[in-house]
Amino acid sequence: MNATEKKPVEKVIESLADAGSVFIIGCTGCPVGCDVGGQPWIDEMTGALTAAGKKITGSCLIELLCNKALVGFKLSRKAEQILAADAVLVGSCGVGVQAVGNMVARRAVPGLDTTCLGDYQGLWPGSERCGQCGNCVLAYTGGLCPITLCAKSLVNGQCGGTCDDGSCEVSPEHPCGWKLIYDRLKELNRLDDMRRMIDPRDSRKLAIPDAIRRTMRYALEVDEQEAAATKEAH
């Protein structure tokens, strides 16, 4: 399971500053397991964005946003509502946001931050990868992840290592992530997103929270211990 947490509402609204209308997609996989996704999140976002003066053109829930067939099938039935929106807000891990961004001709913006959980990439069979950095910047990088695409995980733009063929100097097989981001933003007519100053990462988000480490077995053990302690106290 990918661990996710909600981005602060004001950050989400900021990343949708120039979008008058928004379509919302929620994933009912891992985010629901983390208590930050699904219909309750869609309802919360619908309320917050409506209050911020945005038109919600529609929303949908997808069981697993990392399941390519499911995403394609569900989104195709909502095409009209999606195309009526300026941007799509996605409540999933970074893989799901990139998956949506690559499938629909609209800007995909993350509503959640994905925190570390050992490189699990969901069921997505494509090249989209989420670095689980907990500081999701996909809203400003054309929906392409600089953490996993750039060899140096740079967040403020390309270094000098972009080769003529668009590859990164570390390997001819590795495309320059920032070249891809630049091309995508140019195509979206959103190069100003690249001008945005991105703060250094909060590395605390990279740590695996103890609460997530608890396995079912561990949780049961804790319950048993607590029950035994309560019994003893009486």
Partner: peptide, 16 residues
């Protein structure tokens, strides 16, 4: 890097 294959991306980074 003035000779970058993506000079515009270099300009944007230099602005930053």
């Amino acid at each position: 890097t003035p000779g970058s294959p993506t000079p515009e991306a270099q300009v944007i980074k230099l602005e930053k």
